[in-house]
Nucleic acid binder design. Structure first.
Lengths: 231, 231
DNA sequence: TGAAACAAAACGGTATACCGTCTCAAGAAC
DNA sequence: GTTCTTGAGACGGTATACCGTTTTGTTTCA
């Protein structure tokens, strides 16, 4: 194994490497990440590996046993539901907080949509979709909100990646649908007051669950009971 | 310095020790936490100290400079506003999700209120107040929501502790007010549907800002602009 | 055949050591 | 007096080593 030299410290390099391996599905759920073994693989000592593993635990990609061993996280449908609820909670609030700033300067969103129109592959569309949401979280001016959103993003990416590889779902709509719904949101930010933007974002996220596989448990947004989506 | 032996690892002991020192105000905002110095103080090597510092960063009690030095966090009013928004976002959702479970078994909340009635000091009332909210977060069944709430709690405790020591505020109402509002919430969980519980919890948290010092910036819950409370 | 006991290997927690970088203060140049 | 230079100490990043515990595979006994 060879570590990229673009990142400062070896911990960061190990972190990036392991994160990519886990998200790519190269490291299977439940796999033991023994410090010594990984250290030998990557040609570094155990110290940077330890730190990378702790960081991965923070991101939810790794979990520790009681005896301190690190394993690749095995996410359940319930985990996904928790993550979905989290997004459904955070993003509308972020949209409300970001509304004023985005109304004043919607250029970042416009550029993103333009890039999505020109994107050469579906995977790029997916990344630009994520970026679109991140722009809103950043514009909210609440760094903690953004931090929490990002950390949940790693787990979500892990979950969606696994579903995608097992061919159970398409994890998103087409380019046209993405562009269309994002244009809707942009128009909302441009013309509507914050509380309307909040509602719009909630609807946007609720609409996203239509892309999940049939039978995937998702929380009902009225909070009464869990249900399953219709597809 | 002597570390308590009740915790497993030296990292945990160092973490508990440093966290207590920071929250007590013994370590001032901006103070450098040099690994070697702390290690010597606590009679351990640098390794457990490093891990404790990383954990403290995760909790928001410590921040790292670009060169990797750890400093005790210096919270600004803007930081407090971010934390307040976070709670205002998370807790009502937790209340909605927890409503069904708490309706079925409100005993934990009842016991907490009873203990609050009997509490011998105001500091105990404060802790029981926190516990009351934590019970709701736990009952939400969303472990991630709980985790985020707890992590924001450390920062909030830090902020309130500093205000309290500088005599700028009383950080809470009286025992009677606490018991009274909590009884209100309990009654709501017992008799009202989840969305009503959600609204009730939002009001409860909005009411809490009345206890902040005059001029403390808090986010308006309509999301339009920041404002200041009236006291 | 299956369970219990045991031994060897694996693994994590921690201490120590080395090295490069950063910091900061004392001194030099202007 | 102010700014620039410089060198010693401080500090963090990482490697290596030691030790106790956990894990695992094998053997032994019922």
């Amino acid at each position: 194994m060879k570590l990229s030299a673009t990142l400062r410290s070896r911990s960061d390099q190990a972190l990036a490497f392991l994160r990519a391996r886990i998200l790519d599905g190269d490291l299977k759920p439940g796999a033991l990440l023994a410090e010594s073994a990984v250290a030998v693989d990557l040609g570094v000592s155990r110290v940077p590996i330890r730190e990378a593993l702790f960081a991965l635990e923070r991101d939810g990609l790794v979990e520790f046993s009681e005896t301190g061993r690190a394993y690749v996280k095995d996410l359940s449908p319930h985990d996904f539901e928790e993550l979905y609820v989290l997004r459904l909670t955070l993003e509308p609030v972020a949209a409300r907080l970001a509304a004023a700033a985005l109304r004043e300067d919607p250029s970042a969103l416009e550029k993103n949509i333009e890039a999505t129109r020109r994107a050469s592959s579906l995977i790029k569309v997916t990344h630009l979709d994520l970026d679109f949401h991140e722009i809103i979280l950043e514009a909210s001016g609440n760094a903690r909100l953004l931090k929490l959103w990002r950390s949940s993003g790693h787990e979500l990416e892990l979950w969606l990646g696994r579903l995608h590889r097992s061919k159970q779902i398409q994890t998103h709509g087409t380019r046209e649908e993405t562009v269309s719904t994002h244009c809707d949101l942009l128009e909302c930010f441009r013309t509507q007051p914050p509380p309307v933007c909040e509602r719009k974002m909630r609807e946007h996220i609720l609409g996203w669950r239509e892309w999940l596989p049939a039978g995937m448990p998702v929380a009902a947004h009225d909070g009464t009971k869990s249900t399953t989506n219709r597809r």
